[in-house]
C-alpha cells in the first residue's frame, strides 16, 4: 500500500472515530440493552430478569390508549403546526421587508432560549381555572374546561414546536428563485395557481423536513401532555416514565420503547419517500 493512501485512510478513520464511538456507546449499546430487556421478564422486586419471551410485546394493547393518543395527536399536532407555520414562513421569506427579516426571525427563535418547561407551565396557568376560563366567566360563559383536554395538549404542541416548523420552510422559501414566480405569472397563472404550482411545490422539501422533525419529537413527547393533559391525555413518553420509574416494569417499558423507535423509523421513511417523490427524480403527473 502506498504511504499517502495509507495516511488518507488513517485520516478518515481518525475523523470518523469520535462520532462512531459516541454513537456506539450512547445509541447502539443502550438500544441493544433495551431490545434485550424487551424480551425479558420483570423481576419480582422490579427491574429486569433475564428470559426470552414475547410476552411484553403481546401485552402492548394494555397501553393502547397511550399509543392511540400519540399516533393521533403527533400527526395532528404536526399538521396544526404546519398550518400556522407556513403563512409565517411565507411572509418572512417573500413578503417581509429585507431589513426586518432578521429581527422577525430572531423573535421566532428567542423563545427557544427559555426552557420549554417554564413556557408550558405558563400555558398551564393561562388555560387553568384562574386563566382564560375565569375571564370568560365574567361575560357569562361558565364551566369551560380547557386544561387537561386534548385541545390543550394540541395547543401546547403547536406553541412549543412552531419554530422547528417555521425554520425549514423559511429556508426552502427563501431559496426560491423569485423569477420563477414571475415566469409563472407571465405564462398566465393566477396567483393561486402560481402558489400551488410553484411556491408550495418547491417548498415541499422544507415542509417535509419540518413535518418529520416535529412528528418524531412528538412521538417521544412527555412534558406537554404531562402538564397540559394532566394525566388524562398521555403519550407514550408518559407511559415510559410511568413504567420505568413508577412500576419498575423495565421489560414492558423496553418493549414499548422498541415499538416507538420502529414507528419513528417508519414515519421517517414515509416522509422521505413523499418528499423525493415531489421534488426528486421522477415526475408523477404526466400530461
Amino acid at each position: 500500500m502506498h504511504g499517502s493512501a495509507f495516511r488518507h485512510k488513517l485520516l478518515t478513520v481518525l475523523l470518523l472515530a469520535p462520532a462512531t464511538v459516541w454513537l456506539v456507546v450512547f445509541l447502539v449499546l443502550p438500544f441493544v440493552a433495551i431490545v434485550v430487556f424487551s424480551v425479558g421478564e420483570r423481576a419480582p422486586e422490579g427491574g429486569y430478569q433475564a428470559a426470552f419471551t414475547m410476552a411484553q410485546y403481546a401485552n402492548l394493547p394494555a397501553r393502547a390508549t397511550a399509543f392511540w393518543n400519540t399516533l393521533i395527536l403527533a400527526p395532528v399536532g404536526a399538521f396544526a403546526c404546519l398550518l400556522v407555520a407556513y403563512p409565517v414562513a411565507y411572509y418572512l421569506a417573500l413578503r417581509a421587508p429585507e431589513r426586518w427579516r432578521l429581527i422577525l426571525l430572531a423573535l421566532i427563535v428567542i423563545p427557544f432560549w427559555t426552557s420549554l418547561l417554564m413556557r408550558t407551565y405558563a400555558w398551564m396557568y393561562i388555560l387553568g381555572g384562574r386563566g382564560i376560563p375565569a375571564l370568560l366567566s365574567y361575560i357569562g360563559i361558565e364551566d369551560l374546561r380547557l386544561i387537561n383536554t386534548p385541545g390543550a395538549v394540541l395547543l401546547g404542541i403547536v406553541y412549543g414546536y412552531l419554530p422547528l416548523m417555521i425554520l425549514p420552510i423559511y429556508v426552502s422559501l427563501e431559496r426560491l428563485d423569485r423569477r420563477l414566480l414571475e415566469a409563472s405569472a407571465d405564462l398566465g397563472a393566477k396567483p393561486l395557481s402560481t402558489f400551488v404550482g410553484v411556491t408550495l411545490r418547491l417548498s415541499l422539501p422544507g415542509v417535509m423536513t419540518g413535518l418529520s422533525l416535529v412528528m418524531i419529537l412528538l412521538l417521544g413527547e412527555y412534558l406537554i401532555p404531562s402538564l397540559l393533559g394532566g394525566g388524562k391525555v398521555f403519550f407514550i413518553g408518559n407511559a415510559l416514565v410511568d413504567l420505568f420509574l413508577q412500576s419498575r416494569n423495565w421489560p414492558f417499558g423496553s418493549a414499548i420503547a422498541v415499538t416507538l423507535v420502529f414507528v419513528s423509523v417508519v414515519v421517517l421513511i414515509i416522509a422521505n419517500r413523499v418528499s423525493t417523490r415531489f421534488s426528486g427524480a421522477r415526475q408523477v403527473d404526466l400530461i
Binding site: 420563477l180 405569472a185 407571465d186
Partner: peptide, 17 residues
C-alpha cells in the same frame, strides 16, 4: 397573467421541478 405578452427571462427561469 392577463397580458398578451410572454417573456424569455434572463437565465431562463425554467421550473426546476
Amino acid at each position: 397573467y392577463r397580458r398578451p405578452v410572454n417573456m424569455v427571462f434572463q437565465q431562463y427561469a425554467l421550473f426546476p421541478h
